[in-house]
């Protein structure tokens, strides 16, 4: 019986983000979703539960508007959810989110294995996993593309630049997963209806004692813009140097 915790974030679906003509980000008509890699994290937790026996708790930190994410996450298979929410918990920094998660998970949730997505679809700072593991004082394995449990040990396959690294650690431990690890199932109607009946623990700011001050200051957010230009060159030998000169000038080569 493995106690598994999977952390997830409710993020803006980037497909809906528009740039205004003045270069601002238009979030007027955006929709939200569970961050992509976090779906893999939830799926992996459920797969491990199905394979080895266990219990899955899904945890998220966010603003009260993220309440929609709870049933959504539960329809993907976890047994219960912790919803840590406050109006001041919108747009938290990774250090804040990790500190809040550590306080709640450390004090209230039994865990042998914590699974996080490698990074969120919005910020992709890739800090939650390592920071959370550090605060809980447990081993952390990142870039995991395959996971197995044997004799109370986690065997994780990490994708690293030079190849594949296989690591064994005792539980409890935390892993962050890549999208290759699995293909998240699509919840059926049965799963969706069952989600409404699963227990949800609500935790507000007043239930937390820590101090979660931000460390960063956001000055401005602007839409990225892509400038295209189209220059035509001839196909004679002497045109090649003109082409090279143009690339040098544009900074495309050095």
């Amino acid at each position: 019986m493995i106690n598994i915790v999977s952390c997830f974030k409710w993020v803006i679906d980037e497909a809906y983000v528009r740039a205004t003509s003045s270069g601002q980000i238009d979030l007027e008509s955006v929709d939200y979703k569970i961050s992509d890699y976090d779906r893999n994290a939830i799926e992996e937790a459920v797969i491990i539960k199905e394979k080895y026996g266990g219990d899955v708790t899904a945890v998220t930190v966010g603003s009260p508007e993220a309440s929609k994410s709870i049933k959504n996450a539960l329809s993907r298979g976890p047994d219960r959810a912790y919803f840590i929410n406050d109006t001041s918990f919108a747009d938290l920094e990774p250090s804040q989110t990790a500190a809040i998660l550590a306080d709640v998970i450390g004090a209230q949730i039994k865990y042998d294995l914590i699974i996080c997505g490698e990074g969120s679809s919005d910020l992709y700072a890739r800090q939650i996993g390592p920071r959370l593991a550090h605060k809980l004082g447990i081993p952390c394995i990142c870039f995991v593309q395959k996971l197995e449990i044997k004799d109370n040990q986690i065997i994780a396959e990490r994708r690293v630049e030079a190849g594949i690294e296989i690591i064994t650690v005792p539980m409890p431990a935390l892993v962050t997963v890549l999208s290759d690890i699995n293909s998240p199932r699509v919840p059926g109607l049965k799963d969706t209806l069952a989600a409404s009946k699963k227990p949800v623990v609500n935790i507000g700011k007043q239930d937390l004692s820590g101090n979660y001050d931000p460390k960063l200051e956001t000055r401005e957010t602007r839409a990225a813009s892509l400038k295209r230009s189209c220059v035509k060159f001839g196909s004679e030998a002497q045109d090649v140097s003109g082409f090279v000169q143009a690339l040098l000038k544009a900074g495309a080569i050095r």
Binding site: K68, V186, P187, G188, T192, A195
Partner: peptide
């Protein structure tokens, strides 16, 4: 209601993936 919205979005996910 929230459940109906979720059923819509989960059916959409199904349709986009398989249909």
């Amino acid at each position: 209601n929230e459940e109906q919205e979720l059923i819509r979005s989960n059916m959409r996910e199904f349709a986009l993936k398989y249909v």
